[in-house]
Design a protein around this nucleic acid. Structure first.
Length: 592
RNA sequence: GGGGGCGUGGUGAAGUCUGGAGUUCACGCCGGCCUGUCAAGCCGGAGGUCGCGGGUUCAAAUCCCGUCGCUCCCGCCA
């Protein structure tokens, strides 16, 4: 149907007879000659429709509109005179049409297909097939494809085998909510869609596979965010006779190859590393953006003897005072007060700002409560120079770090991702406490502790062989050395408060599998959507997912999720509660 | 579950704070002119219950209450 791709034509093609097909990007009708920007997946080339050449009937030529799908046969020639368009890769040439045919006309578009205007996202999703014609979306899809191919190339080079694991699995009520799928053959029972292939890839290790990977679709039924969808894609891999360094080095390989592919730059290795504890202390988060400094400093020593009640009270109750040097932010008094109220929104009692003066003194609403020695200590600890703005929070240490971590991002983080800062965070704790004070696994309960005895005796401080890959403040993925000893696995369940009975019921099959000569193994999962989004400078992962869901989990194009026929429910042994049906009825009568 | 932002011809925006005729700008659409433009240009035209419902008022896009949708964030995401 065609001989060439529109976007590939160059001066070297001059004189060629070509047949192209694609869409009318723009039409410039001069009454006589008509110029059409013909767009296909490869790009754009200018087509000249001259009525003197009678490429089609006059009526057909005049009927051409945006996004008509057409085919054109003609000759490639250099553009005459100085009419080359340097903004187009094909700008030196044009195709003079001898024949033009409308393959498929288009109705007037619901929105313009154009990267310059930002159309309401619900509208874009409703007409996603049109949205995908926009050059930025085409570029994102291509980048995603190249990313996944580069990942497969790396994994193949390293001797990994690609294996598919099931997506209809048993629910293990731990962690995120499972997406459930009712079983017809066993009424009243449900499959779960996997949150990750975790247990299956461990079974593959026990099965002697040694090196597995998969581009795996994963599902978590939790609230959506800019970087979270109900379903998402991970590069999931696992290796036997492997430790942490094998995994991290593989991750470097993958990141370097993908970054080279999409950005054309060579990353240095090894990637920087922080322990979880360092990350929390210096950045107030386990996924620091290290493209900029503004590190958190402990100022409790500076204020040990302070007469400022707000600070001394916090210290007396075991909290701490910490701060960042935000540099010369260029904020007004009201802007600074805005930061204070933002900190309060985030859960701090307050945030104190100080501006460093030319004479080394500090201007601040609380300056009058501070001694000269305290001010000197502040300026010294935070390395402040005149004009620098210092932001302090006093509270329970955990709160202080969290708030300063968030404020640091709000005042310091740059908008896009021109610069890339990959980082490994290692030495995560095995457990954290939930709101009830019970231990829960910070990573997942199959993660190996560094020291089993330490884990039993002092679970709150035990370190695990778990690690994260972070890029520009985003968690790209997590992994760990897994437990291969059933005794250790049982101890972890015990510490988590899972009884032997419970563990046997939920994971008995897995504990049994561990007893048959399980090799030591370790692995990781990289979030493909997040990685591509960052490398493409996209504001959220929906931009790199062809058909994403809205924040309420809906697809405006196909109407999912949707109700089903009562007959379907009956077959599954499922009933919709009467109050839900009442809501449906109310919603239908209320309308819009 | 909670907090913030947004919703105005087909699209994007201004107008909303401080109520006074559906006003304005750009794109698109329809018609006309135009044979070298490339976000083509010029002239003319059509097109909107200002998301929806209620309230206040002589008067509501504008103020108040509720609701729906989209979005960002907190919770949640082993």
């Amino acid at each position: 149907m065609r001989t060439h791709d529109a976007g590939t034509l160059r001066a070297a093609d001059v004189g060629s007879e070509v047949t192209l097909a694609g869409w009318v990007g723009r039409r410039r009708d001069h009454g006589g000659v008509i110029f059409v920007d013909l767009r296909d997946a490869s790009g754009i080339v200018q087509v000249v429709l001259n009525p003197d050449d009678a490429p089609a009937s006059e009526q057909e030529l005049n009927s051409l509109r945006m996004e008509f799908c057409i085919s054109v046969s003609g000759t490639v020639r250099l553009r005459p005179g100085d009419m080359a368009n340097p903004d187009l890769p094909t700008g030196e040439v044009e195709v003079v049409a001898a024949e033009m045919a409308v393959l498929s006309p288009s109705e007037t578009l619901p929105f313009q297909i154009d990267d310059r205007t930002e159309v309401d996202e619900a509208k874009r999703l409703q007409y996603r097939y049109l949205d995908l014609r926009r050059p930025s979306m085409t570029a994102n899809l291509r980048a995603r494809s190249r990313t996944i191919r580069a990942m497969r190339d790396v994994m193949d080079d390293l001797g990994f085998m690609e294996i598919e694991t099931p997506t209809l699995i048993a629910s293990t009520p731990e962690g995120a909510r499972d997406m459930l799928v009712p079983s017809r053959l066993r009424e009243g029972s449900f499959y779960a869609l996997p949150q990750s292939p975790q247990l299956f890839k461990q079974l593959l290790m026990i099965g002697g596979v040694e090196r597995y990977y998969q581009i795996a679709r994963c599902y978590r039924d939790e609230d959506l965010r800019a970087d979270r969808q109900l379903e998402f894609t991970q590069l999931d891999f696992e290796g036997s006779f492997w430790g942490q360094e094998d995994v991290l080095s593989t991750l470097e390989e993958v990141s370097i190859r993908v970054t080279k592919e999409l950005r054309g730059i060579d990353l240095d290795r090894p990637f920087p590393r922080l322990t979880w504890h360092q990350a929390m202390e210096r950045y107030g988060t386990d996924k620091p953006d290290i493209r900029f400094g503004m590190e958190i400093h402990d100022l409790s020593g500076v204020f040990a003897e302070t007469g400022f009640n707000a600070f001394s009270g916090v210290l007396a109750s075991g909290g701490s005072i910490r701060g960042i040097n935000a540099g010369p932010l260029g904020l007004s008094r009201s802007g600074l007060d805005g930061l204070s109220s933002r900190a309060q929104e985030l859960g701090a009692k307050g945030l104190v700002w100080m501006v460093t003066e030319e004479d080394g003194g500090l201007r601040s609403p609380v300056a009058k409560f501070l001694s000269d020695r305290e001010m000197e200590g502040l300026v010294g600890t935070l390395g402040a120079v005149p004009g620098d703005i210092l932001l302090l929070v006093a509270d329970e240490t955990r709160t202080v770090l969290e708030i300063l971590g968030l404020i640091r991002l709000e005042v310091g983080q740059s908008e896009g991702h021109d610069e890339l800062a990959y980082l490994f965070v290692v030495d995560f704790p095995v457990f954290e406490r939930n709101e009830d004070g019970d231990f829960v696994a910070l990573h997942h309960p199959f993660t190996a502790p560094v020291d089993v005895r330490e884990m039993s005796e002092n679970p709150g401080h035990a370190i695990s062989k778990a690690y994260d890959l972070v890029l520009n403040g985003s968690e790209l993925g997590s992994g760990s050395v897994r437990i291969h000893d059933p005794e250790v696995q049982a101890k972890v369940f015990e510490t988590l408060g899972i009884s032997d009975e419970d563990a046997e019921r939920r994971f008995g099959w897995f504990l049994e599998a561990l007893r048959y000569g399980t090799p030591p193994h370790a692995g990781f999962a990289v979030g493909v959507d997040r990685l591509v989004a960052i490398l493409q400078n996209a504001p959220n992962i929906r931009e790199v997912i062809p058909f994403p869901k809205t924040q309420s989990g809906a697809d405006p194009l196909t109407g999912s999720p949707a109700r089903v026929e009562d007959e379907q429910l009956r077959e599954l042994g499922i009933e919709v509660r009467p109050e839900v049906r009442a809501e449906w009825a109310a919603g239908e009568s209320a309308g819009g």
